[in-house]
Amino acid sequence: MDRDALLGLESLNQLALTPEEQDEMLAFFAAREADWESLAQVDTANVERMVHVRPMVNVLREDVPSQPFSREDLLAQAPESMDGYWQVPRVLQ
């Protein structure tokens, strides 16, 4: 991981680190290389991936329309609202 790659990662994740934070982050990533090397030493050639810790089955149910929350409750979550709608920043010039 170099500074350019870190900048790309920041952009991807919509973050902007300070130069000091970038230095710390680069040191953190350098230390993780040793972690990955330790993991590489573990033989997993014939080991299946374990995504769920307990056996899981997909649970399906009827798709029934409902109105769990009122318009007023939902608008109360908005930083700003107008005419019964969420008001968001202008994104098209």
Binding site: W36, L39, V47, E48, R49, V53
Partner: peptide
């Protein structure tokens, strides 16, 4: 492959 996938396989080994 060497990180996320590996971690899932190690989860099984630890289990």
């Amino acid at each position: 492959e060497r990180c996320y996938d590996k971690a899932l396989r190690i989860r099984r080994l630890v289990s």
